[in-house]
């Protein structure tokens, strides 16, 4: 039987078209979930409006910044700052479906 296909990461662009990003994340270095995973997507948030982010996806990078090896608080801060900054009107998430 053929080996299970390895899920390939893909970039999802979330346009900041709402007051909140509207995702809840779980995970970070030194926890059972080593990379942040999306556990909730709130209706009306930018992530929900984008329509391409899904619950269960694992976030590898934010605007090219790797989240590998980062503690939960550090990863959450990077995402929050990416949403807050006025330099860009979007956030690029490199995500992968759970393998």
């Amino acid at each position: 039987s053929s080996p299970a296909p390895v899920p390939t990461p893909n970039v999802v662009r979330v346009v900041k078209n709402a007051n909140t990003l509207g995702i809840a994340i779980e995970g970070g270095a030194n926890t059972r979930q080593p990379l942040p995973r999306i556990v909730t997507i709130q209706k009306g948030g930018s992530a929900h409006n984008c329509g391409q982010l899904k619950v269960g996806q694992i976030i590898l990078e934010v605007n090219g910044i790797s989240l590998r090896g980062r503690e939960h608080k550090d990863a959450a801060k990077i995402i929050a700052e990416a949403f807050k900054t006025k330099e860009k009107d979007h956030i690029d998430f490199l995500v992968v479906d759970p393998g």
Binding site: A24, I25, E26, T31, R32, V39, K73, A76, A80
Partner: peptide, 15 residues
């Protein structure tokens, strides 16, 4: 696998 089980669960942050 054992190592993962001994690691603490993570907190959840709403963004």
């Amino acid at each position: 696998r054992e190592k993962r089980l001994t690691l603490p669960p993570s907190e959840i942050t709403l963004l």
